[in-house]
Design a protein around this nucleic acid. Structure first.
Lengths: 210, 210
DNA sequence: CACAATCGGACGCATATCGTCCGATTGTTC
DNA sequence: GAACAATCGGACGATATGCGTCCGATTGTG
């Protein structure tokens, strides 16, 4: 189930259809979230629904596969940020990238917010990897004295979702890049030293329950 | 259609049902947004669907009425904040209240973000009133030198939606009051002087198109 | 007590999605 | 280039959900 094998006994047109389905799925969940119909995906991919089920067995499996790809890209982004020399810039860039990824794909945003059903093992693994990367980025920024002490890496993660739904409010239109303003304000607010100490319990990591 | 009249030729039980329907509608849209079924509302109110349509004519009319009530409450809140002596505290409190109202009612959040269909005239009027209140709160904070100059009142409004969807991210749980931390970070980021100048065009007011 | 106002919820209609199944098509092999 | 198996498309039956109406039963009120 990983990807397309050149010579795996699978016919060439079948492999091509598989590829198209993955592309169409990405686009569909980006625009409309995880609640896409199989027919929509298949039509966008230029195939029939039968082909979708034949190639992936389940709509779920196809969605899982597409989402996993998005997570892998996030992991790449995290690695790239960790290589930046300046601790603050590294953290700030990742926050901006993560916020942008959330905005680029409504489906991704739905998955990172999911707390009900347990994710696939593959997704859980990526999730932990991302947590660790953010923890490290945060730790460095703390050590450099750039990030206020009362902001935890969990706070950083949650703040990355803050620009998700800030395009319109009471007749005001943020414009295509307005969300970046919100992220900029947030980053300024996270910079040391903070003015108003953060109150209440810090966010906690949910154990990946059964 | 405004409210319940003591002696309006309408029978007492009918008036009571009307009241229950409004209460149930508020709770329903708070929890599930505007996409509630008429049956759900009627059941929660303890009446049949027929009663809903008899009392309000349309599901839409009932929803509009319930939402208008939420807007009126926001206007009250704005008035109260405008009476606070300290300009910064006044603005900060309103941001916190607006963010809380958005979180308390998913339906309200959906309406304030709506940019497609034109609102009812009543809603449009409340919207303008709220815009003016925020503009005034912002202006005072600017004048006092507490709010950074590159943050407009439109930015303030948009930022009030930032805590809408920050309860969970990649396995991190913000807890019941975690959203307040996000708002606090934002408010700190809005305080003068800003570090990173906000880039890009400032948010614009959408003309209430036809 | 009588009657009009009101009620409840079954009903008809419409829409949407799922996953399967099968006759038609097409890539591949010899 | 023929023959076969893999693959395809999309019609199909099942299921679910929601809207707004209609009418026999109920209930408030003068």
């Amino acid at each position: 189930m990983p990807d397309l094998d050149p010579a795996s006994g699978v016919r060439a047109d079948a492999r091509q259809n598989r590829r198209q389905l993955i592309i169409a799925t990405r686009e569909a969940i980006a625009a409309r979230g995880l609640d896409v119909s199989a027919l929509d995906i298949a039509t966008a991919a230029g195939v029939g629904v039968g082909t979708l089920y034949r190639r992936f067995g389940t709509k779920e499996a196809l969605l899982d596969y597409a989402v996993l790809g998005l997570y892998d890209e996030l992991c790449d982004t995290a690695r790239a940020c960790l290589e930046r020399p300046d601790p603050w810039d590294a953290m700030a860039e990742f926050v901006l990238e993560l916020a942008g990824a959330h905005r680029d794909s409504r489906g991704l945003a739905e998955v990172t917010a999911a707390c009900e059903r347990p994710p696939t093992p593959e997704l859980a693994q990526r999730t932990v990897a991302l947590q660790e990367a953010v923890a490290q980025l945060t730790e460095r920024a703390h050590a450099a004295g750039d990030l206020r002490a009362d902001v935890t890496w969990q706070d950083v993660l949650l703040c990355s979702r803050a620009a998700l739904d800030t395009d319109h409010c009471l007749g005001v239109d943020a414009g295509p890049d307005g969300w970046r303003r919100v992220v900029m304000v947030l980053l300024d607010g996270m910079r040391a030293p903070g003015r108003t100490p953060l109150q209440g319990p810090a966010p906690q990591v949910r154990p990946p329950e059964a």
